[in-house]
Design a protein around this nucleic acid. Structure first.
Lengths: 252, 252
DNA sequence: CTCCTGCCTGCCGTTACGTGAGAGTCAACT
DNA sequence: AGTTGACTCTCACGTAACGGCAGGCAGGAG
């Protein structure tokens, strides 16, 4: 069977230009042309294209793909291993960034000031030599920084009042429950943990159970977040932490 | 305080060329120049650069960063939320790819033939209309495909003999244990599960406990892998599955 | 005065294509 | 047969975010 560029493009989910490009660089030249100069692809070409797209999706540069496919002595398994490593690294990096961004969102929600160090935390590869005490102070909290942070919360006034009200209402109820001696894994407290999650989801960002337990851990691990809750009521940070975990487990 | 390009580049971990570029496109122009035309950056410039690098690391294009930073009405929280979504999507995609590549590695290790559909599995966004039954058959297993698959395992002959020997030895021992009635979570069997993991790590790819339990699940979920083990001994797939999980838990 | 290092501006190169421009081709419909 | 509309061809420049080099000043040390 023979196919035109357009047909190949459609079935493979790429553009015609992409096929032209692959022809130009010799990565995938059609096996023939019509008398009018139209490219004709056959099944073997499609096979090769499939391979090309496979490696491309895995993040190999086209030049390398050419080498991999054309060199019969090349070791595909070794490439897979290498690519696996690369992917794993990228995955880890992305995970860190997601965590960092969640941290930033939560902090801005609570109006907690991030240190410049933390704002740089998202960069995994901070050269320690470049970040000596002297250099760090340069990134300190100037007016410009504080202002940009103040802007970080930009709901309408009414929104903020509602958020505050809902939040305080929630706070009163959980403090009351804690004072009454209700265990953190009792249904009522777990309901409030669930409400905590939904409050975040509604006003700030979609918060899964996994993310919420991450936040709960952070409430204990980071003293500034601990202080925020301890300030409301002594022991609340740990209490909420336990309730969130219990709730997440029971809903799983 | 004023800094030269070189100093800024050093402390911020970027190249001088990058700063030139940011100046060119108006993303970050130094607040002044010396009489000789040298760029002079002050603390406010550094603040801005920090912000730029922050957003850059989060994957924003430079043009968008310019807009975000320069527009005082822009909502940083909204940007963070949006970026969080983007990151989450990319993360999920990467995770799928890692899984797919592990699947491919495991398959090539066992000399199991992947269907062309599975090889395309790594592409998350297959348009169903593009992949009708007719189109799918086009990607069928031709000679070229099978040959490329045969090449997928390229150890030296001696290596393969050793791998095979080790593998068969391991197989004999676990079959013997199973036949003796040893429970899958007994120490000896778990030791063999551990050996299974180290065998993979030594010959194929670094295999964590998490990955190994993933493989174990696959041994039950995918009938071709199940068949591979059931072929060795009836019940071995489930037995190994349990042993791997037990071992992973006990080592955690 | 010379040397070395740092800085300047231009400008071409890179990756994997996107996006036309201008012209020829194919199949169908009138 | 003519025309239309969809498809194809080959240039060839544009994109993002810089890398890297050339050729030429600037500034401080010896």
């Amino acid at each position: 069977m023979a196919y035109t560029v357009g047909q190949v493009a459609k079935v493979a989910g790429v553009t015609v230009r992409t096929l032209h490009h692959y022809d130009e660089i010799g990565l995938l030249s059609p096996s023939g042309r019509t008398s009018a100069g139209y490219r004709r692809y056959d099944d073997a070409d499609l096979q090769r294209l499939q391979l090309v797209l496979y490696y491309r999706e895995l993040g190999f540069p086209l030049e390398e793909i050419t080498a991999i496919i054309d060199d019969p002595a090349a070791d595909p398994a070794a490439h897979l291993r290498r690519q696996h490593e690369l992917l794993t690294v990228r995955l880890k990096r992305l995970q860190e960034m997601v965590t960092a961004i969640e941290f930033a969102m939560e902090a801005s929600k609570m109006n907690i000031q991030l240190t410049p160090e933390e704002r740089f935390e998202v960069f995994g590869d901070v050269d320690p030599e470049q970040h000596e005490a002297e250099a760090e102070r340069r990134w300190g909290d100037t007016d410009a920084y504080r202002e940009s942070n103040r802007r970080a919360s930009r709901y309408g006034k009414d929104d903020w009042l509602r958020i505050k009200a809902e939040n305080e209402d929630w706070g009163r109820r959980i403090v009351a429950l804690m004072a009454s001696g209700a265990p953190a894994d009792s249904p009522e407290v777990m309901d409030l943990a669930e409400e905590h999650r939904q409050l975040i989801s509604r006003w700030f960002y979609e918060c899964s159970y996994e993310m919420q337990t991450g936040l709960a851990d952070m409430y204990l691990a980071d003293e500034r977040f601990t202080a925020y809750y301890e300030n409301i009521a002594a022991g609340l940070a740990a209490y909420l932490h336990e309730a969130i975990h219990a709730n997440a487990i029971s809903r799983a």
